[in-house]
Amino acid sequence: MTDLSAFPITRKWPARHPERLQLYSLPTPNGVKVSIMLEEIDLPYEVHKVSFDSNDQLTPEFISLSANNKIPAILDPDGPGGQPLPLFESGAILLYLAEKTGRLLPKDPALRYEAIQWLMFQMGGVGPMFGQVGFFNIFAGKDYEDKRPRDRYVAESRRLLGVLDKRLEGRDWVMGDYSIVDIAIWPWVRNLIVRYDAAELVGMADFANVRRVLEAFLARPAVQRGLKIPG
């Protein structure tokens, strides 16, 4: 039987199925990237809810796995060489799972790096900028009288949507075929509309390709399941 007791995180979140990949997460845009990926590749996993309400992300047990105290994080009992692998950062986890299973990442080396390029576009641009729109539009920043910070992030988010919309011309998905790039990007686009109430603010109506592909993404059964994990 697989033994994960050497990992402190299992003291706070015991593994009922230690032979399965352990996911520590919440249904945020970054969190659902991994749950959607796991649902898409049909890899058995056990999910543990990291509650922000009780500051679970700041506990020593969680930080022992995720040094940056951010979700999601995983503990794979069957990592490289058959040894357990702890991993944090959603983009790194997506790459790891794609390479572990040989799915949702192009095998051609040039296309693989092209996909990684667009994954970094999400990690370095879409996520941080859309998140700032959320902060200034519906969270604490909405009460600031000075709207210049909000408008700066709105303008940059609109620019990024324009880049994405142009990329999608003549393509079903960002890489042509469905990939980890889509799993990374579309939860953030959805959040911009549904959670941050910013569709009108960023002019979403102007980006027909973005709206088309978002609709296709949300229609996928694995996506629909992954968006609710953990419940």
Rank of each mutant, 00 (worst) to 15 (best):
Q224C: 01
V223Y: 02
L227H: 07
Q22W: 08
S157V: 01
R211P: 07
V174S: 07
Q57L: 00
L94D: 04
P27M: 01
D146T: 13
F139A: 15
Y144S: 10
N55R: 08
E19W: 08
Y178N: 08
M37K: 02
I183H: 01
L104E: 03
A73S: 02
L97P: 04
Y24D: 01
I116S: 09
Q22K: 12
V32H: 03
G82I: 02
P60H: 10
A216V: 06
W118K: 13
S35W: 02
P230R: 02
E200T: 14
K142G: 12
G170C: 13
I185K: 07
I74E: 04
P106Q: 09
K147L: 09
P84D: 12
A216F: 04
G226F: 01
G91S: 14
K107Q: 15
M1W: 15
E215F: 05
I116D: 00
N209T: 10
D143P: 04
I229Y: 01
R158M: 03
G170Y: 10
G79S: 12
K33R: 15
D177G: 14
R152H: 09
L58G: 02
E39N: 00
F207Y: 06
L87M: 10
Y196V: 05
H48N: 02
E19H: 11
N68G: 00
D151A: 01
Y153G: 01
V210F: 07
P14M: 08
R20E: 01
S51F: 15
L75A: 03
Y24R: 00
L94I: 12
I63N: 05
G127A: 15
R211Q: 14
S64Y: 04
N209L: 13
L58W: 01
F135Q: 10
E215V: 10
P109K: 04
S90T: 10
D177Q: 15
D165K: 14
K142L: 11
P77Q: 11
E99I: 05
P27V: 00
G134C: 09
P109D: 09
K33C: 09
A67K: 14
G81M: 09
G141F: 06
A184P: 02
W186L: 13
P60W: 09
I63T: 04
S66T: 02
L168Q: 09
A98N: 05
G91D: 07
L168H: 10
Q83D: 08
G176P: 12
V47R: 00
W13P: 05
V223Q: 00
